[in-house]
């Protein structure tokens, strides 16, 4: 039934993706589980933490990239682990030198507990990387002004969080997300905190262009099946959004015209 639903493709930078679900590759019980979940999700874009990848040459003990068919997915390197702009820029450049695409999910979190992104360092790094010709997808708190600033700099998306990474608490930042979506000139990808398919559907119904899911798929008892569940939810939510949900229509339309008496 879900196959009968089609949604508009997602455009980020110069690439087009048929799926609006992005998948993270951390926290899986094995590389095989990760590979199967990515395939089942039908995603076209997977993100990999560079700190776990072999950037200085082949390494059988850091082989996370070997599990991803780069013809099938755009591998989006992320800078998780970087605590400031300088580190993020340095590791991004290293990824490019290692042959990865010149795309980067900018993640700068000096707080290693809640992994909340540093807005100041993120903006600094984005300026440098965009200037160098990178397609930059910054992970940010749901701050509309920061989102606008990053778009001014030339970021290809903004990726505001729904709630802290791994928390599975859903769209706690919904009110701010709505403003970001309303003002967005680039795709808005809700990243982090999406713990259930209904959270993903809710983000799409809000008008997010895509969602990124990792923990909820990776630690599921059957990651591939959970990936399918998220994929279906994303399609359902997006379809409803494209059709127009009564609750989110901007213009009110009374069933009987209110001004008919004017003749």
């Amino acid at each position: 039934m879900i196959d009968a639903l089609t949604t508009q493709p997602l455009r980020i930078g110069d690439r087009e993706f048929s799926s609006r679900l992005l998948v993270g590759t951390g926290k899986f019980a094995s590389g095989d589980f990760m590979r199967e979940a990515c395939a089942a999700s039908e995603t076209g874009l997977v993100t990999v933490a560079l700190k776990r990848a072999a950037l200085q040459g082949p390494d059988e003990f850091a082989d996370i990239l070997d599990y991803l068919d780069q013809d099938r997915y755009l591998v989006l390197p992320n800078t998780a682990g970087a605590m400031n702009a300088e580190e993020a820029v340095r590791i991004a450049r290293l990824a490019e030198a290692a042959g990865l695409p010149k795309w980067v999910k900018l993640e700068i979190h000096p707080d290693p507990n809640y992994l909340l992104p540093d807005p100041i360092e993120t903006l600094k790094a984005a300026e440098v990387l965009v200037e160098e010709g990178w397609t930059v997808l910054p992970y940010i708190n749901a701050d509309p002004v920061l989102a606008a600033r990053l778009q001014d700099v030339g970021c290809a998306t903004v990726m505001p969080l729904g709630s802290p990474i791994g928390s599975n608490r859903g769209l706690e930042t919904a009110a701010q997300l709505k403003i970001i979506i309303e003002q967005a000139r680039v795709p808005v990808v809700v990243d982090a905190g999406i713990g259930t398919p209904s959270h993903a559907a809710a983000a799409m119904e809000l008008g997010a262009d895509a969602v990124l899911v990792n923990t909820a798929i990776a630690v599921a008892s059957n990651p591939a099946q959970m990936a399918r569940a998220f994929a279906a939810a994303v399609i359902a939510g997006r379809t409803a959004y494209e059709l127009g949900l009564p609750g989110i229509q901007e213009k009110a339309a009374a069933t009987s015209p209110l001004t008919a008496f004017l003749g």
Binding site: F28, R52, L55, G81, E87, R90
Partner: peptide, 22 residues
């Protein structure tokens, strides 16, 4: 660790994070 359904992660940090990483 694998038999318990977990992945042993060997590398989780990169030399490029250190100021001397170059």
């Amino acid at each position: 660790i694998r038999q318990q359904g977990y992945e042993p992660v060997w590398k989780d940090h990169d030399i490029s994070f250190t100021p001397t990483g170059s």
